[in-house]
Design a protein around this nucleic acid. Structure first.
Lengths: 193, 193
DNA sequence: CGATTCTTTGAAAACAGTCAATCTGTGTGG
DNA sequence: CCACACAGATTGACTGTTTTCAAAGAATCG
């Protein structure tokens, strides 16, 4: 579990073996079974998460039971509920494994310690936050300006990996339409080519 | 123009007079008339912008002429096109003054210099980026989970100041619906209370 | 295999977009 | 001061899209 993380991180940021060791000491390895929930809505998301294997999602549940998926996080991505994690506030989201997964967790305190101790780690996370911002802005622009078909097409192009691993109704939830609508759009789209 | 900025910034972050002076030296003051454009779509957005007075917006224009508003920036807010500014890439957005406005500009190089020279400034911008991320995530969640009426209601509550200063069709554009739809929703909403 | 889970389809209703016309308020030039 | 142009808002009729509800079919997991 940690070796995969180490391999990945060394590709991203040049870190010494001592740096990596510090991160290992503070890390918590966890195996999740499919459908297992890591954070329940209402709980505090106490961890910053790195996914080494599998796939997680975060979603909200409304009073009427409807779910809305905020994010998918496959292997080799970082994940958390930033608002809950940063402020130790109850999360609005449920974080769930969609496949049998392996994750590494760090608490806020430990992560702060690591960021202060390891040169370059702050800059690495800053760059991730910047990229996340770009993605968020893009998704907003798509939400206000694209047709459902365009959103569907874009999702396939940008997230081909996730598309292949996730039921269609979850993509519908992520895009903000019903499963029936997306099913019909996909049919038209598939025929239309 | 700069005095307003100085007043505001000192409320936000404790900075010495020397720090402020450094920022002043690098700053470019600019007055914008209503409808004046600061950055045209396709140009590089070379500046980080602080609005001391007035109101700016950023929007895209599609081939068919339709506009989609990404952001409103009233007085005492920071503004830029992050993608264009960071990468010196052509901007997808037009940045325009909606009122006669006063802005202060810094180039990327000067800003980098200032961030490296002034203790606390990096942390200040980091906090702004974090808050912006929260706002973006909230807007996405609203886009995929709320009805148009809920979005309208939320906009009024969160951006009462902007609501009062901007034509309805721009709010429609920001929310991702047509002006006619928003006009009808507003009528129903106003009567419904 | 049986039980879920997921996807598709149909029909009706709700919702949003389009097009065209009208109404309103504002401000400018004569 | 008035008339006019202009930007913005509203309304109606119509069209197109999406949701809702219900049911059935397909795929997958244990």
């Amino acid at each position: 579990m940690f070796p995969e993380f180490e391999t990945y991180l060394k590709e991203q940021e040049s870190l010494s073996n001592d740096d990596i060791d510090m991160m290992r000491v503070k890390s918590i390895e966890k195996t999740l079974r499919r459908k297992e929930i890591l954070v329940h809505q209402g709980e505090v998301c106490r961890y910053k998460i790195f996914v080494t294997k599998g796939l997680l999602r975060s979603y909200t549940t409304r009073e009427d039971g409807s779910e809305h998926i905020m994010h998918f996080s496959p292997e080799n991505t970082w994940f958390t509920d930033p608002e809950s994690f940063a402020n130790a506030a109850p999360s609005n989201y449920t974080i769930e494994a969609l496949e049998n997964s392996e994750v590494i967790l760090w608490t806020k305190n430990d992560l702060r310690y690591l960021v202060n101790s390891i040169p370059g780690l702050k800059a690495y996370f800053d760059a991730l936050i910047y990229k996340a911002g770009t993605t968020l802005r893009h998704r907003i622009h798509s939400a206000i300006s694209s047709t459902t078909e365009e959103k569907y097409e874009e999702f396939i192009k940008k997230h081909a990996d996730i598309y292949a691993r996730v039921p269609l109704h979850m993509i519908a939830s992520y895009l903000g339409v019903t499963r029936e609508t997306l099913s019909r759009i996909r049919r038209a789209y598939t025929i239309g080519k």
